[in-house]
């Protein structure tokens, strides 16, 4: 049973990776002057939107956490609205944290915010899809021995990788190489994306290697 789960996870992750690759390649066919570095903001929007949509669709198709009880439409709508609010709040929170880390406060607000949206897409959106709008469950999952399925492990690894990638992306900014990708926030968003992709690749592998050790309590 576990192996099939891992296969499902892997296929889902591979689809995510493909969606990211497509967002970097495909728009140049439709949009004039599109390039990853030159029109970075456009790419940020496209990438966030695509990854978000793909995640939601994948979640609906694969449905990793099938809930037993059926909920009413009103309940579903409320859940959806709450999720939207949560996502927006996480964008704001990420924006705040980025500014506290040293990003300019007033100049390039749009860039910072779009970067925050990208980070939220990589982390919060996953949480929302998988765990629902429930902070306590999130906090539980993001702690030692908190994962209850391989999906939770996957969530831990990808989120951490994207955040660490964004953090590492800040390192080349002060260097005096005068490269176009050293401009805020390009290196950070690229770092986050690369981190996310490597997390997507690494998570199934890690789970596969540790499949003997991973025992999950039932919910």
């Amino acid at each position: 049973m576990k192996d099939t789960e891992i296969k499902r996870l892997l296929s889902a992750n591979v689809i995510c990776i493909f969606s990211i690759i497509i967002t970097t390649v495909l728009p140049s066919l439709f949009l004039k002057n599109f390039s990853l570095l030159g029109t970075h903001l456009t790419w940020l929007c496209i990438c966030s939107a695509t990854v978000g949509t793909v995640n939601v669709v994948l979640h609906i198709i694969l449905n990793p956490n099938p809930s037993s009880r059926r909920s009413s439409l009103a309940h579903k709508v409320a859940r959806f609205l709450r999720s939207c609010v949560y996502f927006f709040m996480s964008c704001i929170l990420f924006h705040g944290i980025i500014v506290l880390y040293g990003a300019p406060l007033i100049e390039s607000v749009l860039e910072t915010f779009l970067f925050a949206v990208l980070l939220s897409t990589f982390t919060t959106l996953h949480c929302l899809c998988l765990l629902g709008p429930n902070i306590h469950v999130w906090l539980r999952v993001f702690s030692k021995n908190g994962a209850m399925s391989i999906w939770d492990n996957n969530l831990q690894i990808t989120s951490m990788c994207s955040v660490v990638g964004a953090w590492l992306g800040a390192f080349p900014i002060p260097l005096d190489w005068d490269r176009p990708w050293q401009v805020w926030p390009i290196s950070c968003s690229l770092g986050a994306t690369l981190g996310y992709v490597s997390g997507l690749l690494f998570a199934p592998l890690w789970i596969y290697w540790n499949r003997k050790k991973l025992t999950y309590k039932s919910r």
Binding site: L100, Y101, G102, A170, P174, L175, D176
Partner: peptide
């Protein structure tokens, strides 16, 4: 470069 940008690097690391 990092020594010159120390005033940004140090808060970053502290944070």
């Amino acid at each position: 470069s990092f020594v010159m940008a120390e005033s940004q690097v140090v808060p970053f690391l502290l944070m």
